[in-house]
Design a protein around this nucleic acid. Structure first.
Length: 311
DNA sequence: TTCCAGGGGTAGA
DNA sequence: TCTACCCATGGA
């Protein structure tokens, strides 16, 4: 048992940029994430042994300096976390912020290609914010399909409200399974996604689907993609998104944002919108970095304004 | 009411 | 494997 603490540093890679990571895509806007503008901190509840805690993450000393995890509520608010509790928080931070990702190969490639990609390294681009668990990421990806971004945020918020923890922690697979498809449909308003969501939750809760296996997948992207596609409701777009959050970027999830952005940027003079195939060809030369290359272009286009890319 | 949204599923070529 | 077409469903 270590001494109680309410504030601990988490070591990070030299090129780690907290702001760029948090604003890498729309996840920071989905419950139970909350962005604290005043502190430039990312806040969210986490399940820890014996209950929940609310942690606030920031990088007060700037790029390459440690991320600081502050316990702001829940278990730990009055005395800190014990050793096991703290390890859960640190492990969650590492997954969310992708602290173990090696982006040097991507950044080296970006420097070769030149503008605007050469700025990817200095801007700290390349780590896509994730949930603490692969289950939460899958649920949120399902919530982006066939709907608008506002629909996604409300579906996720209602699910957390209905089945989440007392401090708002994201529901576990068992929680979602217990909620059942009917209530997911009628009260969380997930529409036709309700049954695929509950099926996913049941598969994970029962152990039939082991998502941890995907975290350390050493097979081909195609094999992993095939497993993801076996999940109901996960088509080509959703599967590519899942792969991206697992650190594989040799697929691009084609959605309305991809089509409109790539058409405008790379085919400005085309009379009619080019085919998906034509638009995907733009990124062929990036091999295993296709997805990040596209996302950097989109992100770079928006990030000047300081907002996350949410469509 | 109509139209759209960070698509999925399926049939047929 | 690619295309065409239908379908879903809340919100603007």
């Amino acid at each position: 048992m270590t001494a109680p603490t309410i504030r601990e540093p988490v070591p990070v890679p030299d090129d780690f940029d907290f702001g760029a990571t948090v604003h890498s895509h729309g996840w920071m806007r989905l419950a139970p994430f909350a962005w604290d503008r005043d502190r430039n901190a990312l806040e969210r509840p986490l399940r820890v042994p014996g209950g929940e805690t609310v942690v606030s993450l920031s990088q007060p000393e700037g790029r390459g300096r440690p991320v600081v995890a502050r316990i702001v509520a829940g278990r730990g608010s009055r005395g800190g976390l014990d050793g096991p509790g703290w390890r859960v928080v640190e492990s969650a931070a590492r997954r969310m912020l992708r602290l173990d990702a090696d982006l040097e190969p991507f950044h080296a490639r970006c420097r070769e290609v030149g503008p605007p990609f050469e700025r990817a390294s200095e801007l700290g681009f390349g780590r896509l914010l994730r949930a603490p668990t692969p289950f939460e990421d899958l649920v949120k990806i399902l919530a982006t399909t066939n709907t608008s971004w506002s629909g996604t945020t409300s579906m996720v918020a209602r699910l957390v409200e209905l089945a989440g923890g007392s401090h708002g922690a994201f529901p576990t697979p068992a929680d979602v399974a217990a909620l059942g498809a009917d209530r997911v449909r009628e009260r969380a308003r997930w529409g036709y996604r309700s049954e695929p969501l509950v099926e996913l939750a049941e598969a994970v809760a029962s152990g039939r689907l082991d998502l941890e296996r995907w975290e350390t997948w050493d097979g081909s992207t195609g094999e992993l993609e095939a497993e993801v596609r076996e999940l109901r409701g996960f088509g080509p777009y959703a599967a590519a998104h899942v792969l991206a959050l697992l650190g594989r970027h040799d697929r691009i999830g084609v959605d309305t944002a991809f089509r409109s952005f790539v058409a405008a940027r790379h085919f400005p003079d085309a009379g009619e919108r080019p085919s998906d195939r034509k638009m995907l060809e733009v990124y062929d030369a990036w091999d295993r970095w296709k997805g990040l290359a596209y996302w950097f272009e989109l992100w770079h286009h928006h990030y000047g304004g300081g907002d996350a890319v949410t469509g």
